[in-house]
């Protein structure tokens, strides 16, 4: 049976698109048939993060308006055979689509795919309503900051009202050095406040910027963020994966590089 997962956060810029790209790619790498849908109409970004921006012909709004068939709008990924992207429209706005139309399209995609991942726009307006309409599972992304956590809490409340089957938390951009100094909330603090199950911790990693520059997902690689995303994918599939202790890795490398940096 296929699963429809929405990646959402409330606040912008916390890493929804990066998470969508990496979770989608990771699941495809594990042999699942995956379609990523960019639901941010007017501000499309998932295509660039995936490095597929040059292949867009039709988009989500064209499908909804009946200008093309679903299959025509789907872009095949460069790396994985079983991964597809449904790009968003750049010239329209969020009112071009309504939740009923999204549900209908998602139902259609369910016939061909194991996982449908919806990259949700920031905010709680129409774009959010569209993205969550057809979903039965959610990944709520937050950073360990007051504003992002507050918005995540609001989103969780809205998702619970819609009776989602499962709502899991991803804590993004955690800085272990700051946590150690007592200048950043720990993952446990965030989980304690939001009270939903934790499915992944992604450390703050400059490789995310590098990967986005190149239009390549990190999942499957050896970077800290890449490993964290790999674990998230396995947990999405229901595997019981222990959380990686990045702190040890970091302190080891700081020590090693520290030798060379001394004076």
């Amino acid at each position: 049976m296929s699963e429809v997962i929405v990646v959402t956060s409330g606040k912008g810029g916390v890493g929804k698109t990066t998470t969508s790209a990496n979770v989608g790619t990771g699941l495809a790498a594990m042999g699942k048939k995956v379609v990523l849908i960019d639901t941010d109409i007017g501000l499309r970004n998932l295509d660039v993060v995936m490095g597929l921006e040059n292949r867009i012909v039709y988009n989500l709004v064209d499908v909804i308006e009946g200008k093309c068939r679903v299959k025509q709008a789907l872009i095949k990924d460069k790396r994985y055979q079983s991964l597809y992207l449904m790009p968003s429209a750049q010239t329209k706005d969020k009112s071009a689509v309504n939740p009923q139309q999204m549900v209908k399209m998602v139902q259609q995609l369910k016939e061909q795919f194991d996982y449908i991942i919806l990259d949700c726009p920031a905010g709680i307006e129409r774009g959010f309503q569209n993205a969550i309409a057809g979903a039965d599972r959610a990944l709520v992304v937050t950073t360990p900051e007051v504003s992002a956590i507050r918005d995540a809490d609001r989103i969780i409340g809205l998702l619970e009202a819609k009776e989602f089957k499962q709502i899991d938390l991803i804590i993004n951009r955690l800085r272990y050095d700051m946590v150690k100094r007592g200048e950043m909330m720990t993952a446990a603090d965030v989980v304690d406040i939001l009270s939903i199950p934790l499915i992944g911790i992604v450390p703050d990693d400059e490789n995310v910027v590098i990967a986005t520059n190149q239009g390549e997902p990190l999942v499957g690689g050896s970077t800290m963020a890449g490993r964290a995303y790999q674990n998230i994918c396995q947990r999405v599939l229901g595997e019981d994966i222990p959380f990686i202790d990045f702190e040890k890795t970091i302190s080891f490398w700081t020590r090693v590089t520290g030798i060379f940096h001394k004076n």
Partner: peptide, 20 residues
């Protein structure tokens, strides 16, 4: 108090009124 504790305390109070 560390800024971590300040953040946690502020959020706890903030979310009570947000949730209601």
């Amino acid at each position: 108090k560390s800024s971590r504790e300040i953040a946690k305390d502020r959020l706890k109070i903030l979310l009570i009124s947000d949730r209601v």
